[in-house]
């Protein structure tokens, strides 16, 4: 664990630095508030309603696909490092896993989950 201490120090340093820059600008920067300035930027219009409304479901789909593939990458990390110790069995089982994953991927593709239009 001892080699992680510099990282901890670095995290503290990075946080101090960014919070410091942020608060310094609030202290030093000029302040002249008026309502138009504080309103939401929409090219001069008043916004009609809340901006956190509906959005394209595609973004959600991308997030779901990302979770699947990212989990798979996590599986691959230890496999890649231990590749020389696990021999034929390890190699074949991961190839099998990738084949199953590819079948799923092809299914997604044919279903049109990857199309944007």
């Amino acid at each position: 664990m001892i080699e992680y201490i510099p990282i901890l120090v670095f995290i503290v340093f990075a946080l101090i630095f960014s919070v410091g820059a942020f608060s310094l600008s609030i202290l030093v920067g000029k302040k002249a508030y008026y309502p138009e300035k504080m309103s939401t930027y929409e090219c001069g219009f008043e916004p009609f309603d809340e901006s956190r409304g509906k959005f394209e479901v595609k973004f959600y789909l991308v997030a779901i696909l990302f979770i699947i593939f990212d989990l798979e990458i996590i599986f691959l990390f230890p496999w890649a490092v231990a590749f020389y110790e696990i021999g034929l069995f390890g190699y074949l089982s991961m190839i099998f896993f990738l084949v199953v994953l590819t079948i799923g991927f092809v299914y997604e593709w044919l279903k049109g989950a990857l199309d944007w239009n």
Partner: peptide
């Protein structure tokens, strides 16, 4: 220049997350 400019918090925003 950036440091001395005014920091704007829009009135509709969630101030804490915004910062």
């Amino acid at each position: 220049k950036l440091l001395t400019k005014e920091t704007i918090f829009p009135e509709n925003s969630n101030k804490f997350i915004f910062a």
